[in-house]
Amino acid sequence: MDKILEVNNVSKKYKNFDLKDISFSLDKGYIMGFIGPNGAGKTTTIKLIMNLINRDSGFIKIFSKDNIKNEKDVKDKIGFVYDQSYYFEDMNLKDNTKIISPFYSKWNQKKFEYLIKKFGLEMKFKVKDLSKGMKMKFSLAVALSHEAELLIMDEPTSGLDPVFRSEILDILREYIQNENRSVLFSTHIITDLEKTADYITLINKGKLLFSDEKDLIIEKYSVIKGSLEILDNGLEKKFVGIKKHSYGFEGLTDSSNFMRKKFGDSIIIDKPSLEDIMLYMVGEKHETINI
């Protein structure tokens, strides 16, 4: 009932890429960060959610409705922000809006004009003259002007400077002050999610690695640093990922209590960042590359 988005065992096969059995869900009122390295399948998943490409199997429900059977209804309440501009480049914002707004049953022109002004844009600007950041703000203004309950953003912050990204995060926090709204937000700039996201879904090479509360994920894992002498095969298995260098090792583990008991002060136990967790989980066993 409280689920705003459900992705169930969704698969999509391409020649060089396979999205396999992706399942996760998002509750009303929360922000989910959708992360993974380039080519992991984030955009493919989002395109499947938006029904921009055909899925091979599985099903997707948005607002408890099938996203294909009820495509029109569902999209009416989704604010979609894509990493590429899909507007008419030669037209100004006003004319672009005239084309876009009739697609939405609850288009709010007043709100749109307010946001355009707030974001420092003008209706007479042509899309092709906008900077990357301004285009993003225009997209965001459109997404926020039709009473959308679900905001889906594909890499909204990539290529933007930290000040700009922080503004966007503020807007998202403001957006979910209404507890019926949710945000799905894909990014590879993980620091953006460290503070804002409630849930994190990580995919790699077309497979889901986890989808859980951000705080629980961070509490579950620790980064352990120590000397190579203590590292044997049995111990290495207790690490999700490990990096060795000439003077010691560093690894991600979910057995920090065991490590603390066994090695005490001879190791350092640190709280991981989300970025640490992603790097260790998607990283192959690290070997030095000779260049």
């Binding site: 009122g29 922000i31 995060l169 979910i176 503070k195 849930y199 951000k214 705080d215």
Partner: peptide
């Protein structure tokens, strides 16, 4: 919880907990 999360710039689920 939502207001507090926004003010502290942290996630809603953290203030909820």
């Amino acid at each position: 919880i939502r207001k507090l999360a926004k003010e502290l710039q942290i996630s809603v689920i953290t203030t909820k907990r």
